[in-house]
C-alpha cells in the first residue's frame, strides 16, 4: 500500500492520540512502526512523520493538561526531579516523544522496505 505521506502522518497522529488514552505509552510507538511500514514511507518521510506525530501529540496533550494545573503540580514535580522548570518539563516530554517517534518511524520504514518493497526497490535476481 503506497499512501500519501500526509495521510500517513494523520494516521499516526490519530493512533498516537487514541492509543494514548487506552493503551500503555509504548503502544503508540508500535502504531507508528506499523503505519510507517505498511504505508511504505521512505526513511526520511517516516522519521519526520513519526517524530513530529509523536512529539506534537504529546506536547499538545501536555499543554492541555497543564491548563488545569492550579496547584502547580508540574513545576513541583520538576523541582523534585532535580530542579526542572515547567518549560523544561514540557521540553523533556516533547523530546522523549520526538525521539520515540523518530526511532519508530525509522524502524517502520526499514521494515516496510524489507517486507513491502516498492517495485523500484525489488532487485531482480538476473541483474
Amino acid at each position: 500500500m503506497k499512501t500519501n505521506p500526509m495521510i500517513s502522518f494523520l494516521l499516526m497522529i490519530i493512533g498516537v492520540t487514541g492509543l494514548g488514552f487506552i493503551a500503555p505509552w509504548w503502544a503508540a510507538a508500535i502504531w507508528i512502526v506499523v503505519i510507517a511500514s505498511i504505508t511504505r514511507l521512505n526513511k526520511k518521510q517516516a522519521i519526520l512523520s513519526g517524530s513530529f506525530a509523536f512529539g506534537l501529540v504529546w506536547l499538545a496533550m501536555a499543554l492541555y493538561m497543564s491548563l488545569h494545573d492550579d496547584a502547580k503540580i508540574i513545576s513541583k514535580t520538576g523541582a523534585l526531579l532535580g530542579g526542572l522548570s515547567t518549560p523544561l518539563m514540557f521540553a523533556v516530554t516533547f523530546v522523549l516523544a520526538f525521539v520515540t517517534g523518530l526511532l519508530s518511524g525509522w524502524l517502520g520504514s526499514a521494515l516496510g522496505q524489507t517486507f513491502f518493497p516498492r517495485k523500484s526497490e525489488i532487485v531482480s535476481p538476473e541483474k
Binding site: 500503555p24 505509552w25 504529546w58 493538561m65 488545569h68 523533556v92
Partner: peptide, 30 residues
Amino acid sequence: LSTDIPVGENFLPAIGRFFSPFQGIWHNVH
C-alpha cells in the same frame, strides 16, 4: 524509557510512562 534508573540512593522513575501526558505525571494535575 521503561526502566527505573538508580540515581544515588534514589530512583528515577521509568520516564516513558512518567512523562506520558495521557497516563503519567501530567495526568495528576487534575
